[in-house]
Design a protein around this nucleic acid. Structure first.
Lengths: 200, 200
DNA sequence: TCATTAAATGAACACTGTTTATATTTTATA
DNA sequence: TATAAAATATAAACAGTGTTCATTTAATGA
């Protein structure tokens, strides 16, 4: 009598197949090149079928969004073994920017793309993002305990650091640094992180 | 025999009308809501006519891009009368962010929107942007002369400051700060600029 | 076996930017 | 001034987009 369970499993598999196809297209060419018909072709189903498993394209968008944040969080956690609080904070920033460089499409989706109006209201969606932000704040608190960030509120420091790395990342991802050769960009980024360190 | 001149004037007027309609739609709803047909409706011509005056939609995009940079540059210049080099630099940053808050659609177009592939190669396009960047570097040099930014390369400082204000601006423009009430955002921005000042 | 339910389809809708054959208007010349 | 030539404007068409829906096909349980 496990037909119900099997059906649910099949439904999950179908969703998985759609997402995996979307991800494949997405990683290759970026989000705007992912069309419903291309996904349908990829999984060898008709367009209409996708709409039996996903409300609309935005729902697929949001699932990718979630996947991106999971990968992102993993990378940030991996940095937590660095002992020195200051060094850890720097690695944190570096890992942030490196993610944007390695996975520009994901970074775009997560931090730059216009968020569908419907999605905004669901706060729950951002928990994966909040998680990393909490991690950043924790690292700042620990740096404070080690004597840094004297007289700076944690909220202000966190906002500043986020803005900074996001600024660099988004300029890179949206091709505003193309006049600068890639090598120079790397040394500029390194220099900038050092410069920001003076404010700690 | 002034028919040639008149024709040229009429051509310019038509381009002007198209741009002004595009700008109107654009300022109201943002770039993605500007369609060729809506522009045509607005100026009471058929769609095809627009293509006699503009190669494609990107050309209209780029004209708006230029207009935005002009307004942007004006604002930056207006700040140059501030005497104290440090204060001037801060006002510079504030003016930058304020532009993004006042004219989010323009800011988006200038610093966030994907640049059409064709446009990238025309370096000349970015002169208006370069102009402001040169102004920033000049202000940094002058701050250096006043004893700030010791041991920091001008290029690094300029890149850092730009990344910072762009980070804030683009998070704001692309709705990544919606969980924070607007009042808090303002004080966060003020706090951040002060925090960054510690690195000077 | 067969009626009922679920799943999949492909055509259609309304929209997008762009092209093009056709029609209209303006210009210059005979 | 009449007319051929050139410039300008138009509407329809093309290929693409996300989405919907009547219809067909497949799976289910009595």
């Amino acid at each position: 009598m496990g037909t119900k369970e099997r059906k649910e499993r099949q439904k999950a598999e179908m969703r998985e197949a759609v997402l995996s196809a979307a991800l494949r297209l997405f990683s290759d060419q970026g989000y705007e090149y992912v069309t419903m018909r291309k996904i349908a072709d990829e999984i060898e189903y008709s367009v209409g079928t996708i709409y039996l498993y996903f409300k609309d394209k935005d729902e697929i968008f949001f699932e990718l969004h979630k996947l991106g944040f999971e990968e992102f969080y993993k990378r940030q956690i991996a940095i937590q073994n660095v002992k020195d609080p200051l060094q850890r904070l720097k690695e944190h920033g570096l890992a942030y920017i490196q993610f944007a460089i390695d996975q520009p499409q994901y970074y775009d989706l997560m931090f730059i793309s216009r968020i569908p109006a419907k999605t905004i209201k669901q706060k729950q969606n951002w928990t994966s993002g909040d998680r990393t932000y909490e991690l950043l704040k924790l690292n700042i608190v620990q740096a404070k305990e080690a004597g840094y960030f004297k007289g700076v509120e944690v909220e202000v420091a966190a906002f500043s650091l986020w803005s900074f790395v996001h600024g660099i990342s988004s300029l890179f991802v949206r091709d505003r640094l193309t006049t600068i050769p890639m090598e120079s960009v790397k040394s500029l980024i390194a220099g900038s992180l050092s410069f920001l360190g003076r404010a700690y």
